[in-house]
Design a protein around this nucleic acid. Sequence first.
RNA 1: GCCUUCUUAGCUCAGUUGGUUAGAGCAGUAGACUGUUAAUCUAUUGGUCCUAGGUUCGAGUCCUAGAGAAGGCGCCA
Length: 478
Amino acid sequence: MKKERIKIISIGNIKEESQIQVMGWVRTIRKSKNVSFISLNDGSTINSLQIVLDMKVFDEKIIDKINTGSSLSVNGKLVNSTGKNQKYELQAESIELLGESDPELYPIQPKKHTFEFLREVAHLRPRTNTFSCIFRIRHACIFAIHKFFNEKGFINIHTPIITSSDAEGAGEMFRVTSLDLDNIKKNKLDYTQDFFSKPVNLTVSGQLNAELGALALSEVYTFGPTFRAENSNTSKHLAEFWMIEPEMAFYDIDDNMDLAEEMLKYIISYILKNCSSDLSFLENLELNDEKQLPQVKRNEFPLIQRLEKIIDNDFIRVKYDEAFQILRNSKPNKKGKFNFKVDEWGIDFQSEHERYLVEKHFKNPVIVSDYPKQIKAFYMRSNRDNKTVAAMDVLFPSVGEIIGGSQREERLMMLEKRMEEMNVSKSELSWYLDTRRFGTVKHSGFGLGLERLIQFVTGMKNIRDVIPFPRTPGNCSY
RNA sequence: GCCUUCUUAGCUCAGUUGGUUAGAGCAGUAGACUGUUAAUCUAUUGGUCCUAGGUUCGAGUCCUAGAGAAGGCGCCA
């Protein structure tokens, strides 16, 4: 009979009594005199396959070398399990130890580890149940995003990672150079001698380039890494993260909000449909963790219900004016409970204000639009009132701002005026202004933070635990 | 960057008002066990108490400085 390697996720499709081969890594091994059990996991699913070893058949010396973390190839017969926790198990007929794992040194034990500890062994943490769930869900999110845009006829464009424009004000940038920095005298950098003959940086946003694409291909999106050299030490910031930036010609701010809401619901329903066992695992993990917390600190609903609520309800849409009034008249504001008082029109909302709107007042995702122009970027379209711009932020429970976007200023005169007011160089961005000089049209777009979305979908508290290799101030290992 | 808290065995944590030889569970090691489910049972190895100073007869415990981490805040996605 032919033996072929089967992935553990597809065990359910295999006929009983089939001869199969599986390969994977040992999660636990339970050895006893007559029979031993191995939990083998190949990352295709949260479920491990139980391997049963009849100790009369196998050389004890070889079995002794199998430990947590070892890699194995196992041939055997798939049979119904007499145990309670699994339907099938593999009756091993031959085992090849592919790679040993010294149990004195291997850091991942079959027990609960803290996320802080696992961050220190981030190169091995995908071998844990929790992180394998997260990375499978991360993949599913990425796939769903491409699928969504493909179905809507969007063109994926790659915007540059190395960029010379520093005019966006989206944050501190990482300088890119080929100069020998070890042998340069203080303050004597000569960029004309550098690779690009001028100072260049890692991108903080692909938006301006994406606009060029939209004003030719109608609907485009970027999906790439983004770099911010901000000294941000929070559970919601990374120095290197992934951002999705759709940009659409002929869309106004309302079309933009519709697309953002439709996209988020699409992704979340895709995850609910395709990652149910991973979601259940994470939901249980969260429920167990929360047992130790006081009621107030627990989530109001379990993970899967939180996701279902997103799909089942319309996002609340409020203009800045209205949100400002709600906050100003709110109890915490009147009682002085906010660290930042809401009193003067024009202030930027702090995260405590956003959280109040989303988690206390509306109890639903909220899209706030039409912000005062002085707190927003130069490229956002001025409204008729000349006080606000057509900006919109999508605020989610627990993670806060998940999307920021706007209708772009397509009127050349208005855009140039804003650039002058905000000290943005027109000559450096002359290529950008060309889109307004030649065949300008109304257009809109937004940026979605992939890791923040995954945080929401997985319920993970720290953004460093939803990206394989997190980069944060002082941390760039692996 | 700011505020608060934390740092004790490979991991998770106890360690009383400063007092003699710093403990537990898990992991590891040796053994037992006829089907286990993070198996169980017996025995056992393992410590620069984050680092450097200081106070004290005596410091894991108190003080100062530094490093690292977590949570919150700011900047933002």
